[in-house]
Amino acid sequence: MGRSAVAKNRPAAGVGPRPPLALHRTVDLVRHAERLGYARYWIAEHHLPPSVAAAPVVLMGAVAAGTRRIRVGSGAVQTGPRRPAVIAEEFGTLAHLSPGRVDLGLGRSKANRLIGPP
């Protein structure tokens, strides 16, 4: 079945508030996980600082482009403030670019209570 890794989506130690460096280090980290035999890497959606994954599908695309075998999953995309069709289009496109390597995780968020359903 293989091992899985979960992204904490925070800048790495010593990076500070520099998201570009943290994003590149995330890709490097997943490459390393792939070399160690990990089967999956999960990226959770977070919107408050110091998170670097407000748009997980974009980060997943960078990770998939920078690796060859490891599966990339969203754990989880927040469905409250986003329309289901948009989520399906984004992940469908990613799945076409990285066949057999994308896992979609969905979840509710506190935003459901703050702004209501779409």
Rank of each mutant, 00 (worst) to 15 (best):
residue 10 R to L: 14
residue 14 G to Y: 15
residue 106 L to G: 01
residue 91 F to Q: 01
residue 14 G to W: 15
residue 77 V to I: 14
residue 49 P to Q: 12
residue 114 L to R: 15
residue 22 A to S: 08
residue 20 P to F: 10
residue 55 A to Q: 04
residue 91 F to Y: 15
residue 89 E to D: 12
residue 35 R to G: 05
residue 28 D to G: 06
residue 94 L to C: 09
residue 109 S to Q: 05
residue 76 A to E: 10
residue 101 R to W: 11
residue 80 G to F: 07
residue 58 V to K: 08
residue 84 P to E: 10
residue 24 H to C: 00
residue 1 M to L: 09
residue 105 G to F: 10
residue 91 F to S: 02
residue 11 P to Y: 10
residue 45 E to L: 01
residue 77 V to N: 05
residue 60 M to W: 04
residue 116 G to H: 14
residue 117 P to E: 13
residue 59 L to V: 08
residue 65 A to D: 04
residue 85 A to T: 10
residue 3 R to F: 15
residue 108 R to P: 09
residue 63 V to K: 05
residue 29 L to N: 02
residue 81 P to M: 13
residue 35 R to L: 12
residue 112 N to I: 09
residue 110 K to D: 14
residue 69 R to P: 04
residue 97 L to M: 05
residue 69 R to V: 11
residue 20 P to H: 05
residue 112 N to E: 15
residue 15 V to T: 14
residue 84 P to Q: 10
residue 116 G to Y: 13
residue 114 L to P: 02
residue 30 V to F: 12
residue 38 Y to I: 01
residue 42 W to Y: 15
residue 109 S to F: 03
residue 20 P to M: 02
residue 101 R to M: 04
residue 116 G to L: 13
residue 11 P to L: 05
residue 78 Q to A: 08
residue 64 A to I: 09
residue 107 G to H: 06
residue 107 G to K: 00
residue 105 G to A: 08
residue 48 L to D: 11
residue 47 H to Q: 04
residue 102 V to H: 08
residue 16 G to Q: 13
residue 53 A to M: 07
residue 1 M to Q: 11
